[in-house]
Each structure stands twice: as structure tokens, then as C-alpha cells.
Nucleic acid binder design. Structure first.
Lengths: 340, 340
DNA sequence: AGCAACCTAGACAACGTTGTCTCACCGGGG
DNA sequence: CCCCGGTGAGACAACGTTGTCTAGGTTGCT
């Protein structure tokens, strides 16, 4: 049961062959006597020998073919899509991805990075922790390729993949204005978050460009939960202070929808980040969608290129977002169906 | 840049200390001269030395503290929740989880298992592939603990964690009957799938128990996509053949909802498997929910216990499902709100 | 004071694999 | 017949780490 697994030596002995010949066979060398090869294959089958990659990888210059990924929560659809996309590219290149969740805990984040380095991963893809996104990368001497996704770090010279948060918000806000809204409210989370700052910046580009000078009174950045967002939107509805809502993240969007339901009437709405339920609701919710799969692909290809010795040229890569209009941006709901 | 990372030897030389003393320090031995310990700590800091776990783990009897997980798709919320839950338990025990997606591809499934064994994981948690769920486990000689989740395999002696598919469906069907439905339709995917067979069995327990003898005419097991499910439900609605719908998986539930929308009227509905949008729709969709987190927890604890030498007693573990009633099971919709 | 028991440091071999190198062999050309 | 180049097999050391064992020092007891 708990017997020591067979080694190359065992195979070599069983096949009456030199150890190195087994090594060559296992590594797919072509110049092997077919007779010996057959004996080796038989011995491997008989012993159920498995190549020990951990042992093979300790040789200097020999890579582990492992890539590490540190995200906040694998159960979050945004991150699981990212991980899936990275995994796909890695596996195409013969690499295995190790995805770790840190729960936005700065300490655990560091622990996971250390553990992955200890496992001798060939490269690291990291979403910086929400609080204190910089410290972990600041002093570190990176002997392996590092790519940072979703949020930037201050440490210089690190490959960074970002979504165009500002541009997406700009497009969404412009659409709401185009639909006739003079007073577009911005509902979002704390400005400590890079993405929130960017999204607010995009919003302001439009609002200030149109000289509406309402941004300050209509900007709410304390909505950490859907309920808080809901309360804010509810009070806007009651006092009739806004003509449209831009919800700067998922939770704010859900909160706005709840407020609409509670108040019994709605405002034009666009949210940042797509979500599964968005097209199923009535009206279907328009969103600024990030191309998470593409972000993952670029991150993976960057880290793999670097791991294979090629130095990627671009240091910071900003991927476009897409404005997905489904109906909720309009003043009036046209259809009567309550489900798409 | 691509310099060889420092080894314990380098640390020992820098600290003017024996190699083994560094090993003891790194492994947290207590009986070390504080003076030497301080010198070692300094040297580690100066060289940015990282413990090489791959090298450490090649010693026989020394474990890699790695657990492998093979699922079909990390981006699927069901599996990402499972992975997250397993990851949590693993990390509590100091283990790292390697989650791999096989895309329901039998060949890739085998490849991933082989690769994980080659990495010398201490244990393996596997969701058998949809097609041909048995072959991969049949002849294999498992030197490491193996736990199978979600679908059973025929090979004997393998720890198995399942949800109570039949029981959950039984409860849901009974509820629909209790609400007054004489003709409950069963919409689901192919009976090649274990879960479908189980769910249908649960459905039949109620339908045949109530002697309605309608199961055959109201059982549809060819709905592979939401569209196909939608077509089936649409035709049931048009011909007024059913009083209620049991949708045996997510896609069938979505399909039924689309059919309701297209037809302009609905039937009482309960679906198997919860989904994010379910509570947001109107009426909120009632479902049979699996406790995926608990399945992951049990699977992880089983494999970890086995990896640590304890033989778990139970071989097959069936976890209860939960009937979540949100409104869609009723004949009439009471509320008027279109969003929870 | 003398001796035993204990403790820590480090030398050494081993882990399973691969890189290097040597040797044996085979065929062909001089 | 001999030599030479080419090919494939295996002996050997090395990779970075840990288990074992010994040496030496210190403490405590008689």
C-alpha cells in the first residue's frame, strides 16, 4: 500500500538495461535499440513506473514546467475565468498552473508567493492584494518572471496587464448622457482601489467635459456591499436627484437593481463588470465587460515567453473593455417580456 | 537575471556554518545555537535564499504536500466552488492544491492524472470524465490516496463523495405534486450521465408512488442545451401537457425559463442545481441545491486523512441536498416585484 | 574531581534523476 | 587487414536537500 514507488533503477534492473538508457527512453530519445526499448517499455508497464518530475527538476537549468497564480478567490467568477484562461495557455505550452487563493489577505498573499517560489515555479502571475497592493513586490528580487494582472504595482520594471477601466466607464457614461441623462450618478466602492479610481476618472472625463459640474454631488464611493449601494440609490430615487446610474462594480449594480425593485421604478443603468444574471433580467442589464479571457491569455503568454528566455517588449498592457448594451441604459423599457 | 538561485550550501558558506545546520534552521529545528541561527538568518536575507521544496521532497518518505484535483472546467461555478472549498481545507493542513481542467476530455483527463502523479502529489481528487467515467480508474494501481467526487466509478475500493441526487429530486417532485400538479414533467440531459439517472430515479419514486403513471410520457432526457430544453418545454406549454416542470440541471432550468418567456405564461418550476441568477429572477427560481462546499470539504479531508496514513472508514459518502423554495414552485405568483 | 549523560555541529551518504564522458561495437574505406 | 567515424550503452558525478552518525563540548551527578 504505502510501498516505495519504483524508480528508474528498478526499471533498469527489471529490463536488464543501464539506468541512463531508461532515462533516455523516458525522455523520448530516438536513438535507442528497439530491443532494449521494448524491454524497458515492458518493465515500466510491469512495475507501473512513473517518472518523478520533482527529482528531474532539481537539476539546475532544468525547469519545473510549473506556473504559479495568486488571486484572491477562485470561487469568484472573474478570477476563475482568469485562471481558466491562463491554465489553457499554460497547458498548450506543456506547463501546469498552480492557482492559489489569498482571500485578499496580504499576509496569506505573501505566504503563497513564497510557497510557490519554494516549489520552484518557472513564473508567477499575481493579482496584487486589495489592501496594500505594493509592499509584496517592492523589495523583492525576482529571479523568475513576474506578471501582475488587474491592478498595477508601484515597483518598476514589472509586466502589468490591465483592463481599460477608465475608457470603459467613459463609454458607459457617455452612452447614459447620450440617452438624455443630465445627472448621471456614480456608485462605487472605496477609492483606495485602483480600479475604482480609474473608473471614477473615466466618469469624470465625460461629466466634466459636458460641463455638468455635478460629479461631486453625484459621486458615491462608499458602497462596499450591495445593500449599501441599494440604500444610496434608493435615496437618490426618493429625492429625484439623478437621471441615470453608473454602477462601478458588480455589487453596486445588484444594489441599484434592488433599489429599483423596492422603489417600484427604475432609472437608466449601466454597470461595470458583466455577470451571469445580467442578460436574464428585465430589462437586461447593460454592462462594461472586461475581456477576462484575453487578459489571462496575455498574462500567460507574457510569463511563458519570459520563462523561456524571451524578454517581452511591452511592459504595461491595457486591454480594451467592451460596452454591452442590453436595454437597461434606455429611459423606457421597450419589450414586455420579463425574461430574455 | 537568470543566475542560479542560491542553495543551502551558499547560505552555509556565507554564514560560516555547516550545511546541515542551515537545513535544521530552515526546517525549524529548535536546538540551534542562537549565534549561529542569527548568522544563518542574516545570510538567508542577504542571498535571498529560498528553500527548494522540489529537492527536499525527493527523499523517500518525505511528502510533497501537494494535492491534485482534476475537474472538467475551472470556469464552471460548480467546479470552482468545489476547488475553492478543497483548497481551503488543504491550505489549513499546509497542503497546496493543484487544480486541473480536462474539459470532459477523457484523454486529457488521463494526461493530467499522469502529470500530477509525476509531480508526486500526495493525493488525488478526481471528478470522473463525463464520457467513459470508468476506464481511467479501472486498471490503475493507486499508490496514492484517491477520492472521487460527483460521479462514482465502478472500480472497487475507491472513496467516493456524491450528492443525494435522487433524494433532492424526490423532494422537489413531491413539492410540485403537493402544490397541486398532477402532471410533473422531467426535463434533463442524457441518461448516460450518472447524475441524470439518479435524478430520474428520484422523480420516479414520487410519480410512481402517486400512481400517476405519467412518467414515461413526461420524461425528456435529450436536452443537452438550454435551447433544446426550451423547445421541449415550449411544446409542453402549447399542448398543455404538463402542470409543472422539474428541470434536472442548470441548462434545462434556463431553457424552461426561456420557454415561459416566449410562451407568455409559466408553470410551477423547480430546477436542480442553484445558479447565481435564481434569486434575482421573478418569480425567484426554486432549486435543489447541492452543498458543493461541503462536498469539497469532505473530499479534501478524506484524501488528507488517507495521505497522512489514517484510513477513512466510510467508502462512499452521500451528502444531502437542500430544497430551496423561492417562489417558482407555486402555481400563482404572489408578489408583483420583478426583482427580489 | 571524575564520569556519564546530554546536546549541538558537521561530515557523509543517500534520494531519483540527468549531463558528461568513455567505451564498445559496427560498417566502410584505405 | 587496419583504421576511422559514427552510433548507442552505461559508469560516474552532480543536482539541492535530508537522515544518520560521530565528534566534541558542556552540564550535572556522584
Amino acid at each position: 500500500m504505502q510501498a516505495r514507488p519504483p524508480t528508474m533503477n528498478d526499471v533498469a534492473a527489471t529490463a536488464s538495461v543501464g539506468l541512463k538508457t531508461v532515462s533516455r527512453f523516458v525522455n523520448g530519445a530516438t536513438n535507442i535499440d528497439p530491443v532494449l526499448a521494448a524491454r524497458i517499455a515492458l518493465a515500466i508497464e510491469a512495475l507501473d513506473y512513473r517518472h518523478n518530475l520533482a527529482a528531474a527538476s532539481i537539476r539546475p537549468g532544468r525547469s519545473s514546467k510549473l506556473i504559479g497564480l495568486v488571486i484572491s478567490d477562485l470561487a469568484n467568477p472573474y478570477y476563475s475565468s482568469l485562471a481558466r484562461s491562463i491554465e489553457r495557455v499554460c497547458s498548450e505550452h506543456g506547463y501546469l498552473l498552480m492557482s492559489m487563493s489569498c482571500d485578499e489577505d496580504t499576509e496569506r498573499h505573501q505566504l503563497l508567493i513564497d510557497r510557490l517560489i519554494a516549489q520552484r515555479v518557472d513564473g508567477l502571475i499575481v493579482v496584487p492584494p486589495r489592501d496594500d497592493p505594493n509592499a509584496w513586490a517592492d523589495g523583492a528580487r525576482w529571479r523568475i518572471p513576474l506578471v501582475v494582472v488587474d491592478r498595477p504595482v508601484t515597483a518598476p520594471g514589472i509586466h502589468t496587464i490591465l483592463a481599460d477601466n477608465a475608457g470603459g466607464t467613459e463609454a458607459a457614461t457617455a452612452e447614459l448622457v447620450r440617452q438624455g441623462a443630465a445627472r448621471v450618478a456614480f456608485i462605487g466602492d472605496s477609492l483606495k482601489l485602483y480600479t475604482m479610481r480609474e473608473r471614477l476618472a473615466g466618469y469624470r472625463r465625460i461629466i466634466e467635459h459636458d460641463d455638468l459640474r455635478l460629479s461631486a454631488r453625484l459621486t458615491f464611493t462608499g458602497a462596499h456591499t450591495a445593500d449599501q449601494a441599494s440604500d444610496i440609490v434608493l435615496s437618490l430615487l426618493e429625492k429625484n436627484l439623478a437621471d441615470a446610474i453608473f454602477a462601478a462594480n458588480n455589487r453596486s449594480t445588484i444594489g441599484a437593481l434592488r433599489a429599483f425593485a423596492r422603489a417600484g421604478h427604475r432609472l437608466p443603468l449601466i454597470g461595470f463588470d458583466d455577470f451571469e444574471a445580467a442578460p436574464l433580467l428585465n430589462p437586461a442589464v447593460s454592462v462594461v465587460a472586461q475581456d477576462v479571457a484575453e487578459m489571462g491569455r496575455v498574462a500567460a503568454e507574457t510569463v511563458l515567453a519570459a520563462a523561456q528566455g524571451l524578454a517581452p517588449l511591452v511592459e504595461t498592457h491595457v486591454l480594451p473593455t467592451r460596452l454591452v448594451l442590453r436595454g437597461s441604459e434606455a429611459k423606457e423599457i421597450s419589450g414586455t417580456e420579463w425574461l430574455e
